[in-house]
């Protein structure tokens, strides 16, 4: 489904601020793969997502999604088939527009044929209400309210729905529960698991929670200094402990993982 070949990116080349963000990253995801990504700050996790989503043009390498080379495609065209969520719940929704209007915008990805002058139809509303009801947050009764009135967790759940309203070929989750309180984070994570498995969405999820990294999805990737240093799946992953994962990381990266948040979350 997703094929990255030797993707490299250096920011501010030739200056004192030069930063090699991605070094020859190659990655292959099968359709329906759900991979979690862990790594210390600055390891290149978000940069990898930015490269896939098209926020910048990589210096080297190619990105192929579902057989189509998207390396040179602008970000807004890629988002037709790539759904994305950020850590900040404010990033995914338009606060001054209603829930229904936000969903209508997300739904635009599906409706290339409809006229730009068409309005939200009854059928659209019914679909939105049905999908909102699946979140179990009662948002289906508040469709005419501005999104700015919702809590962070509700907004993030809505963003998840918007990113998957039209089933994407690839879903990128960038620590999308990190800014939520633990109970809400669990709820949003459960919704994520449910939606991703029901629709067989190919998914990449950045997390700092080592437990989630091993239990969610079917593959675990670890990144360090712009490289993917570890990629475990299948049997090996099923029997792996958090300590085992950290050991393997230290072996491959040549140093121990130094992310406080990850190490703290280990003790939960």
């Amino acid at each position: 489904m997703l094929d990255l070949k030797n993707v490299g990116k250096t920011f501010n080349p030739g200056t004192v601020n030069e930063k090699v963000a991605l070094q020859n990253v190659s990655l292959h995801l099968e359709a329906g793969d759900f991979a979690t990504i862990v790594g210390s700050n600055g390891a290149g996790k978000s940069t990898l997502f930015n490269a896939i989503a098209g926020s910048f043009l990589p210096d080297t390498g190619t990105i192929v999604l579902d057989g189509r080379d998207i390396t040179l495609l602008p970000d807004f065209k890629r988002s037709k088939t790539i759904g994305r969520m950020f850590q900040d719940p404010l990033k995914g929704t338009a606060p001054n527009m209603t829930i229904e209007e936000n969903l209508a915008l997300a739904f635009l990805r599906a409706s290339r044929q409809t006229s730009p002058f068409s309005r939200i139809s009854k059928a659209d509303r019914a679909l939105f209400a049905e999908r909102l009801a699946q979140l179990g947050l009662g948002l289906e009764n508040r469709m005419k309210q501005p999104v700015g009135l919702l809590s962070g967790g509700q907004r993030q759940a809505l963003t998840l729905l918007m990113a998957t309203l039209v089933t994407p070929k690839l879903l990128l989750l960038d620590e999308h529960t990190a800014a939520l309180d633990p109970a809400t984070a669990d709820k949003v994570l459960e919704l994520t698991r449910q939606i991703v498995s029901e629709n067989h969405i190919t998914c990449l999820m950045i997390t700092h929670n080592m437990h989630d990294a091993l239990t969610l999805g079917n593959r675990t990737l670890m990144m360090d200094s712009g490289r993917i240093v570890l990629d475990v799946g299948g049997e090996e992953r099923a029997h792996m402990t958090v300590d085992g994962l950290l050991d393997r990381f230290a072996q491959n990266a040549g140093h121990a993982l130094d992310n406080d948040r990850i190490l703290l979350s280990k003790q939960e």
Binding site: P74, S79, K80, P95, M97, L105, A106, S115, F117, S118
Partner: peptide, 28 residues
Amino acid sequence: LFLGTRLGLSIRATGDNPDMVRASSINT
């Protein structure tokens, strides 16, 4: 009327949250 159409919604969202608009496959 125009601001209630799909194009109108896209324009409103562009002013409200450009990140989200690009993520909805709209060219800002």
